[in-house]
Amino acid sequence: MTPPYILVLYYSRNGATAEMARHIARGIELQGLEARLRTVPAVSTECEAVSASVPAEGAPYASLDDLKNCAGLALGSPTRFGNMAAPMKYFLDGTSNLWLTGSLVGKPAGVFTSTASLHGGQESTLLSMLLPLLHHGMLIAGLPYSESALVETRGGGTPYGASHHAGADGKRALDEHEVALCRALGQRLASIALKLGDTRD
């Protein structure tokens, strides 16, 4: 039997969302669970999706089995006009069978995003990612204000999930508060999964 894991599923174009995913994974591991990093292929108007099973670099592409068998989910995307990016939406649109079988019901989930501007739609993007997770019956885990970084941040960070202000060129590094909130989200998801007993054999 595969050991329990939290799936950290993300799409990243310029690297900021991928960096957030790695910090979330570290938070999960600090709680003693495996973090499984996965990404999704880009989509274009000329073809439906890139179908290679392993990208040239970075995390492998996610399968529906990665999602089905997880003990919890951290879902991340950069913002696109206040919404999740098309590749992530495309992947989620293909999860109807998991919805029909109730495979994700009762599992904890959280979301994260990165934006070019400080007020570039972080919260609406996070909310857009929560909608399909609610339809799947997942239990939403945000970030409580007991996390001091949420009160102190001058960059990203919301109660809806972790966020990052990457700057217009996408090169601004995560600051200490953004890193702390990513790790806190990972720890929170792992802790909830353990409490729910979704890590049973």
Rank of each mutant, 00 (worst) to 15 (best):
1 M>N: 12
3 P>D: 15
5 Y>D: 02
5 Y>N: 03
7 L>R: 03
11 Y>M: 03
17 T>E: 02
18 A>T: 08
18 A>K: 05
20 M>K: 11
21 A>C: 01
22 R>G: 09
27 G>E: 01
31 Q>T: 07
31 Q>C: 04
32 G>C: 10
34 E>R: 00
36 R>Q: 06
42 A>R: 12
43 V>T: 10
44 S>K: 01
45 T>A: 12
46 E>G: 14
49 A>E: 15
52 A>D: 14
53 S>L: 10
54 V>R: 15
58 G>V: 03
60 P>V: 14
62 A>W: 01
64 L>S: 05
69 N>K: 00
72 G>Q: 04
73 L>W: 07
74 A>D: 09
75 L>F: 15
76 G>S: 14
77 S>D: 02
77 S>K: 03
78 P>E: 13
81 F>S: 15
84 M>N: 13
84 M>C: 14
86 A>L: 10
87 P>W: 12
87 P>N: 12
91 F>P: 06
93 D>T: 04
98 L>H: 06
98 L>M: 00
99 W>P: 09
99 W>R: 06
103 S>E: 15
106 G>R: 09
107 K>W: 05
108 P>D: 11
109 A>Y: 10
110 G>V: 10
110 G>L: 04
110 G>C: 13
113 T>M: 00
119 H>C: 05
122 Q>Y: 12
123 E>L: 06
126 L>F: 06
127 L>G: 01
127 L>K: 09
129 M>D: 12
132 P>F: 11
133 L>T: 11
134 L>K: 10
135 H>P: 00
136 H>D: 05
136 H>T: 00
137 G>R: 01
138 M>R: 03
143 L>F: 12
147 E>T: 05
148 S>F: 09
148 S>I: 13
149 A>M: 11
152 E>I: 08
154 R>Q: 15
155 G>F: 07
156 G>I: 07
156 G>Y: 09
156 G>S: 08
157 G>T: 11
160 Y>H: 11
163 S>W: 02
166 A>Q: 09
169 D>Q: 03
171 K>C: 06
174 L>F: 05
174 L>E: 08
174 L>M: 13
174 L>A: 07
177 H>A: 04
180 A>K: 04
180 A>Q: 02
180 A>R: 04
180 A>N: 01
181 L>R: 13
182 C>P: 14
182 C>Q: 13
183 R>A: 07
187 Q>L: 05
187 Q>S: 15
188 R>C: 02
190 A>N: 04
194 L>R: 07
196 L>N: 08
198 D>W: 01
199 T>Q: 04
199 T>C: 15
